[in-house]
């Protein structure tokens, strides 16, 4: 599995996670539209596709081929290791 921290250390990849948090099962086309219209990020489809590969290697995104289309869905479970490693302190 890829590095979750490296996957998060990029503004575009964080924006992709923001958009996938709003809706499951997005195509590459929808993700690119959201990045362009809501975040002003004019990344090429190829660049976004590579970002998705990094997120998928880190387990933060799952892609699924259904029929003729490929959909992407957010998985936040790898983020749990952050809170486990540095648990929040109890507030007095």
């Amino acid at each position: 599995m890829g590095d979750v921290f490296k996957a998060l250390a990029d503004e575009t990849r964080r924006a992709i996670l923001d958009e996938l948090a709003l809706r499951d099962d997005q195509t590459l086309f929808e993700i690119c539209s959201r990045l362009a219209m809501k975040h002003g990020l004019g990344s090429t489809r190829q660049a976004v596709s590579q970002h998705l590969d990094v997120l998928e290697e880190a387990g933060l995104v799952h892609s699924e081929r259904r029929g003729r289309y490929k959909f992407h869905t957010l998985d936040t479970s790898p983020l749990a290791q952050i809170a486990e490693r540095w648990p929040p302190k109890d507030t007095p």
Partner: peptide, 10 residues
């Protein structure tokens, strides 16, 4: 078409 449909491109 298979390639653009897979990526959801109209």
């Amino acid at each position: 078409r298979d390639a653009i449909v897979a990526d959801g491109i109209p």
